[in-house]
């Protein structure tokens, strides 16, 4: 993990601590909670797309597995929440392996459709066999660790963003490890990495598993916050929304996922006053941001900062 990223993580931690203290409004903090949940999935998709070059339109499937597994285990069997969240992550990881192994032969649009199909199949399965069927089910216990219950919005905000920080730290370590370097080689040229003796298959599976586990964690956090889930929250549209977050924020940088998730979560809230025009305005803003930002907000900002710094540090 390099110096800039460590610094950025520290800044993030400071912001996390200060937001609830400064704002004090449960509404703003609730937006923060959902931003954090979305950020978890977006980070996973960032690693998958930006570092391994694999596209996925099936993240909602893992998100749904995470939500349903931990919600069912806690609601119907009364098991401790953290245990169930971990169990859900393991289930999602298995699902990711099952999806990844045959999908490795596919690329580009074909891979997109394969992951899309996976997500939709999970959604149909939840509709058909999930507890509650299409109506979903409620009264899911809130997140608790032993006796401490995260029943206020502020405590949940800290819980979710705590997870985001941990996930970020883990991810930075991962992409700077040997595996991470191998991943970048893979993104550069699959043929060359094969020739260098990299086990491309194992790598791709590993990345799929990591992104699925993040999505699953996000799903569990969602279920234990809203305390009601139904399959309609875990559809293709959510997968596309996450993709949008990652692209707007910047696919080549993990921070892009975080920033994109926050922007895309806040945007509809800002547009509430447009009422029936909000869809139109939302679409226009997305289109213009995509056209102006291109490689994403975060890479653009980094480039600008480097340009400003450039004259000072002549030879970087």
């Amino acid at each position: 993990m390099n110096r800039d990223n460590s610094l950025a993580v520290l800044v993030l931690i400071a912001v996390i601590i200060f937001v609830p203290l400064v704002s004090g409004s449960a509404y703003v903090i609730t937006i923060g909670v959902f931003s954090g949940i979305n950020a978890l999935i977006a980070i996973g998709l960032c690693i998958l797309m930006g570092y391994a070059g694999q596209v996925s339109l099936g993240q909602a499937g893992f998100y749904g597995i995470g939500a349903y597994v931990s919600a069912t285990l806690t609601h119907h069997y009364g098991l401790p929440v953290p245990l169930c969240v971990a169990a859900a992550m393991i289930v999602s990881a298995f699902a990711a392996v099952i999806l990844a192994v045959p999908s490795l032969r596919l690329k580009g649009h074909y891979l997109a459709v394969a992951t899309l199909s996976f997500g939709e199949i999970i959604n149909i399965a939840l509709n058909e066999w999930g507890p509650g069927g299409p109506s979903g089910f409620g009264d899911i216990p809130t997140f608790n660790i032993l006796d401490f219950i995260f029943d206020t919005t502020t405590s949940y905000f800290y819980l979710v963003w705590g997870c985001v920080v941990l996930v970020l730290l883990f991810s930075f370590n991962f992409i700077n490890s040997r595996t991470g370097r191998a991943l970048r080689a893979l993104h550069g040229s699959e043929l060359a990495s094969r020739a260098m003796g990299l086990d491309v298959t194992a790598l791709k599976i590993k990345v799929f598993v990591i992104s699925a586990a993040y999505a699953s964690l996000a799903g569990s956090l969602y279920a234990h916050y809203v305390t009601f889930i139904s399959p309609s929250s875990f559809t293709l549209f959510y997968s596309i929304l996450v993709l949008m977050m990652v692209v707007i924020g910047g696919i080549t940088n993990l921070w892009g996922g975080v920033v994109g998730a926050i922007l895309i979560t806040i945007l509809p809230e800002l547009l509430r006053s447009f009422e029936e025009f909000d869809v139109l305005v939302y679409g226009l803003i997305l289109t213009l941001s995509l056209m102006f930002l291109r490689r994403g907000l975060v890479p653009l900002l980094i480039e600008k900062i480097k340009q400003l710094r450039g004259p000072l540090i002549a030879r970087d």
């Binding site: 797309m49 596309i240 692209v247 139109l280 939302y282 679409g283 997305l286 289109t287 056209m291």
Partner: peptide, 27 residues
């Protein structure tokens, strides 16, 4: 205007255009 070779970006643009079109149609 994009003049981009980034396919992913272009595909995302088509998605956002579809949202705009839906907004207009709903209106």
């Amino acid at each position: 205007p994009l003049k981009s070779h980034d396919l992913l970006l272009m595909i995302m643009v088509t998605i956002s255009v579809s949202i705009v079109l839906r907004g207009i149609l709903a209106f």
